Amino acid sequence: MKQQRRDAYTRWLAAEIQAAIDDPRPSISHEEVMARMDAQLARLGEGRPTEHAARKAP
């Protein structure tokens, strides 16, 4: 049973990696990701919704 779970996880991980490789969207630099995360954490610290949550609102 443990081997089956490991095999399933390996297949899932391989599919996730391949999907990331195949994604046609432009890459985002580490610095940009960290800047966005810092801004989201600051909003949460202030009790405001994150940029992501604000975009989903109707």
Results as ranks from 00 to 15, higher is better:
E46P: 03
D22V: 00
Q3W: 10
R5Y: 14
H52C: 08
E51Y: 14
Q18Y: 03
A53S: 11
E32K: 02
E31S: 14
E16R: 00
R43C: 10
L41T: 09
D38M: 07
A54I: 07
K56G: 01
T10Y: 08
Y9T: 11
S29L: 13
L13C: 05
G45H: 05
G45Q: 01
K2H: 14
A19N: 01
P58L: 12
R43G: 04
T50K: 02
G47V: 02
G45T: 12
A35S: 13
L44S: 13
T50F: 00
A8V: 09
E31I: 06
E46H: 03
K2S: 12
I17P: 01
E16T: 03
R11C: 08
H30W: 15
R43M: 06
K2M: 10
D7P: 05
A54V: 11
M1D: 07
T10C: 10
A53P: 04
Q40C: 09
L44Y: 03
I17C: 02
Y9S: 12
I28E: 13
P24S: 00
V33Q: 15
K2C: 05
M1I: 04
P49Q: 01
A57Y: 07
K56F: 10
M37L: 14
V33N: 15
R5W: 11
S29A: 06
E51F: 12
K2P: 06
G47A: 00
M37I: 13
A15K: 02
Y9R: 07
Q18R: 01
R6S: 08
V33E: 15
A42C: 11
S27R: 13
R48P: 03
A14F: 00
A57N: 09
I28V: 15
G47D: 00
D7K: 15
Q40M: 12
R11F: 05
A8R: 09
E51V: 09
A8W: 06
Q18I: 04
R43N: 08
K56S: 10
T10G: 12
G45C: 03
R25V: 06
D23C: 11
P26H: 02
S27L: 14
R11K: 11
A54C: 09
R11L: 06
K2G: 14
W12D: 02
L41G: 01
Q3D: 14
M1T: 07
P58R: 10
D23V: 00
A57W: 04
M34T: 12
K56E: 07
A14E: 05
G47L: 00
A53C: 11
K56Q: 05
A54M: 05
I17L: 03
D38K: 11
E51C: 08
M34V: 10
A57S: 11
Q40N: 14
Q18F: 01
